[in-house]
C-alpha cells in the first residue's frame, strides 16, 4: 500500500496517471512512450489500479450499507442499492476528487446549498472529461440532471 493512499484516493500518483490516460482513450504503447517505460509496466500498473479501485469501491459500498448490484472495474463505478432508503446508489471515482456516493433524488431542487451544487457540478465535469464524455450545456444544467446523463452513458442500467 502506498504511503499517501487513502480510502477516498486509493491510487499512487503513477497509477493515477496511467489509469487516467487509459480512460481518456490512449493506447498502452502510446502511454508507455509518453512515460518512457515499457508496455508491460503500463499493463501491470493498469491492472493493479483497477484491482485497487474495485476493492475500494466495494469497501465504500459496505461502509454505506449498500447491496452491490454491479461493479464496473474498468470505469471504476459501482451500482448498488440501499435497502433502508429504498434507493439505487452509485459509487464513483475521479482522480482529482476521489470517491463519491450518489443517491437517486426525486426532487433534487430541494437541495439549495450553492457550494454543494457547485462542487457537485465540478466533480461531474471532471468525471466526464476523464472518461471522454461530452455533454451539451453542461455548465447551465442542474447537477442532478447532469449526473443522470453522465451515469447513463457509463452504466447501461441507469436511464437518463
Amino acid at each position: 500500500m502506498c504511503p499517501n493512499c487513502t480510502l477516498s484516493s486509493p491510487l499512487s500518483q503513477k497509477q493515477k496517471t496511467i489509469w487516467s490516460l487509459i480512460r481518456k482513450g490512449f493506447s498502452v504503447s502510446t502511454i508507455a512512450d509518453k512515460l518512457s517505460t515499457t508496455r508491460q509496466y503500463v499493463n501491470q500498473t493498469r491492472l493493479t489500479a483497477e484491482a485497487k479501485l474495485s476493492t475500494t469501491l466495494l469497501e465504500v459500498a459496505r461502509a454505506n450499507d449498500l447491496q452491490v448490484m454491479r461493479l464496473y472495474p474498468k470505469e471504476a463505478i459501482l451500482l448498488g442499492y440501499h435497502p433502508a432508503l429504498k434507493r439505487k446508489a452509485i459509487v464513483t471515482y475521479s482522480t482529482s476528487h476521489g470517491i463519491k456516493v450518489w443517491y437517486w433524488h426525486d426532487n433534487p431542487e430541494e437541495v439549495t446549498n450553492e457550494d454543494f451544487l457547485r462542487q457537485t457540478r465540478e466533480y461531474l465535469l471532471d468525471l466526464a472529461k476523464e472518461r471522454g464524455i461530452e455533454v451539451e450545456d453542461a455548465a447551465e444544467m442542474h447537477p442532478a440532471k447532469l449526473a443522470s446523463i453522465i451515469f447513463s452513458k457509463l452504466v447501461p442500467e441507469v436511464e437518463s
Binding site: W104, P108, E110, V111, S148
Partner: peptide
C-alpha cells in the same frame, strides 16, 4: 420536465430524510 437525478450523499437532504 421536473428535474430528477443523482446527487452525492449529503447528511441533511430533505427528500432522503422524509423518505426514511
Amino acid at each position: 420536465n421536473r428535474i430528477k437525478g443523482w446527487l452525492p450523499k449529503e447528511p441533511n437532504v430533505p427528500s432522503c430524510q422524509r423518505t426514511h
